[in-house]
Design a protein around this nucleic acid. Sequence first.
DNA 1: TTGCAATATAGCCACTTAGGTATATATCCA
DNA 2: TGGATATATACCTAAGTGGCTATATTGCAA
Lengths: 114, 114
Amino acid sequence: MNQLDTTFAALSDPTRRAILARLTDGEASVMELAEPFAMSQPSISKHLKVLENAGLISRGRDAQRRPCRLEVKPLAEATEWLERYRKIWEGNFQRLDALLGALQASKNPGEAEQ
Amino acid sequence: MNQLDTTFAALSDPTRRAILARLTDGEASVMELAEPFAMSQPSISKHLKVLENAGLISRGRDAQRRPCRLEVKPLAEATEWLERYRKIWEGNFQRLDALLGALQASKNPGEAEQ
DNA sequence: TTGCAATATAGCCACTTAGGTATATATCCA
DNA sequence: TGGATATATACCTAAGTGGCTATATTGCAA
């Protein structure tokens, strides 16, 4: 699995996205991260391991705590992938708009298939 | 599974990302999409079904062909999610820079706790 | 040292996924 | 009608995932 694979796979779970969102407020311990969820602590630890393996978070050491913090690099790479294609999609959209305009100008309203 | 879940899950596979990339050049049939891959046609059809269920592509009909085309909406939503947090991450980076500067100016390097 | 608090690991289960092959369906063409 | 082409479906398998409980580990504090 390459970096984009693991990044998108990690982002495909709502618990993990919520954890990442929480970490934008700053470092947090496992207990703090687990608190909002109706889920056992080991399950949260497993999610954190997925995020760590994807390079999306890193862990520190503070006594018994292993605080988590965001790592932005893989997220930036995922954003770049999407952004690169978004520009092309936007181009397609403009072409689509032109096509729809042409169709509306014609008589056949059947293909509002979008 | 909500929209973001299925979108990111669909994006986590390199074959599917390559298919989406190919589709930025315009519609393509299943055979055309399968051609670059050392993979059976049914496997490609399965990937296309994943993409279709995620709303990332839609299918038409052209004789025996079922041409695929990109649907941008879910990709736009995924981009929005990443962009929203990217701004915060960038903000954190700036704050971190400031914090590191302050710490270097002081004498106690112990509390890099954010 | 004893014990508590925070976290990780192990093992279990149900479900999903990504690949394969074989076969069915659908559409065109002769 | 019959054959060829394009695609989908059914079924199999191996591996991965997400949840759980129980237990181990680690570090502090009395």
